[in-house]
């Protein structure tokens, strides 16, 4: 049961990290675009999703979302055995993406304007500017806060127990209620969370060392 729990937790972690990075990137592009409507929508998204707990979104996607869909789709979703996990992924993604977009936006602000000008003057299209010049720098400049965010996201996967997604925390509670060996199970789970979070932090620090941007050189190019 614990092994399944760990598996589901890892699935949740990997899936939400990838999806929220993608969604966050889309939203940050919306927020820094020149088109007013897109900018408005991006800001609206961030203001709404940042100010409501992730737990709410998980519950929302589990209980309310199938009702909002057409009847037959909703029934199918409710009948699907892995729907709690999917609802958890959706809820965590929309919650995390708002933070990711906020972090990336601060990264965009830290890139000197000259970079953009150079990209433009070397004849790159707007898409190419984003893909080859701006986005890589944004990710590299914001690696430490992004990493912290991902660790938070990992911890938030435990919230999915509220909708009985069979992840690690839920498994410990099941063990507690079936065998009364709650303390052992909870200790193992806590240890697992601490270990994996530490491993994530270590990986992030290593990545940071490899990908560190030389800030002073950026500053000189600014001047």
């Amino acid at each position: 049961m614990l092994i399944t729990g760990i598996k589901i937790t890892l699935i949740l972690l990997v899936a939400t990290s990838i999806t929220s990075l993608c969604l966050g990137t889309i939203i940050v592009i919306m927020r820094i675009s020149r088109i007013n409507i897109l900018r408005f929508l991006g800001t609206l998204y961030v203001e709404i999703f940042r100010n409501i707990p992730g737990l709410f979104w998980i519950l929302f996607f589990y209980f309310v979302f199938p009702e909002l869909l057409p009847q037959s789709w909703g029934d199918k979703l409710n009948g699907y055995i892995h729907y709690p996990v999917i609802a958890g992924i959706l809820g965590l993604t929309v919650d995390n993406a708002s933070y990711v977009s906020d972090i990336l936006r601060s990264g965009r602000l830290s890139i000197p304007h000259a970079q953009r000008e150079v990209a433009m003057s070397s004849g790159l299209s707007r898409l190419q500017q984003y893909l080859h010049v701006l986005l890589p720098q944004m990710f590299r400049a914001t690696l430490p806060p992004l990493g912290t965010r991902m660790v938070h996201n990992f911890k938030n996967t435990s919230l999915c127990m509220a909708i009985s997604a069979s992840e690690l925390t839920w498994a410990t509670q099941q063990i507690e209620s079936l065998t009364f060996r709650g303390i052992e199970a909870t200790s193992i789970a806590t240890l697992f969370y601490i270990c994996l979070a530490s491993v994530m932090v270590a990986v992030i620090i290593l990545l940071e060392k490899f990908l560190k941007i030389d800030v002073s050189s950026l500053k000189q190019s600014k001047a």
């Binding site: 660790v151 911890k155 938030n156 996967t157 435990s158 919230l159 127990m161 925390t169 410990t172 509670q173 709650g182 303390i183 909870t186 789970a189 806590t190 969370y193 601490i194 979070a197 530490s198 932090v201």
Partner: peptide
């Protein structure tokens, strides 16, 4: 600090609850 920051809040709540 490091242990508490690496533990999900839900786990702390369960520990304290029990």
């Amino acid at each position: 600090i490091e242990i508490v920051r690496a533990t999900p809040l839900i786990m702390i709540i369960f520990w304290m609850y029990f």
